[in-house]
Design a binder for these strands. Sequence first.
DNA 1: CATCATACCTATAACAAATATGTATAAGGA
DNA 2: TCCTTATACATATTTGTTATAGGTATGATG
Lengths: 113, 113
Amino acid sequence: MAKTNAAFMSGIPELVVLRLLSRSQMYGYELIRAIRLASGESIVLAEGVVYPTLHGLEHRGLLKAKEKLVKGRVRVYYQTTAKGKKRLVALESDWHRINNGVEAILRRLICQS
Amino acid sequence: MAKTNAAFMSGIPELVVLRLLSRSQMYGYELIRAIRLASGESIVLAEGVVYPTLHGLEHRGLLKAKEKLVKGRVRVYYQTTAKGKKRLVALESDWHRINNGVEAILRRLICQS
DNA sequence: CATCATACCTATAACAAATATGTATAAGGA
DNA sequence: TCCTTATACATATTTGTTATAGGTATGATG
């Protein structure tokens, strides 16, 4: 499932989208750049990943969309809803749990059951 | 793709299997417990996940298998090959990169591009 | 003798990311 | 003017992997 980001990506688009849009509203194209920049180029999501993610999250009521006409071009701004923020908290918790589990295994020098 | 481990699992089975079997050989059933215990119950992989992973890794030459008869029962011990260890190094690198990227986004309090 | 833990296995489903396209406008350069 | 690039949206299809749900068989326990 991986080329540009090489594995370890499941759940990441939803998590980072909900997170970034929980602080400020953004439109898709802007969000894609924001993810790339904010992650230090570590996470690069193509439009074909981000737009379906946005639509899915909106459909589930986790994002709210608002169209704006800017310089003769339509932009669709999204922001995380209250429900989306609850989901975000749960996702962050899951993410840290998995993370700690993997770290524990990677760091382990000795012993096994 | 997620129930027991709720998302964030892509690539994880390959990573933790290669890692644990790079230090000591184990058989599948033992490995499943080891993953659960070593991760502090954070990562629980079912047999239907682990066995196909083992077979796939062996087929790719990243693991070496060795059958043993113990107490009248066949056990298949696996250990990570040199090629598998190279793959492990690459995977750990990828994992830390993605991880840092996500952390950077989650921790970020201010600013966006 | 029945049940549970051990120990292996595989087929199918489910699901999300990656890829490849496609449309259309504005801006900038030749 | 024309061409190209950046912007801005969109979706269909492919791909790849985990999750689930089965199945077989032995040894130990009560």
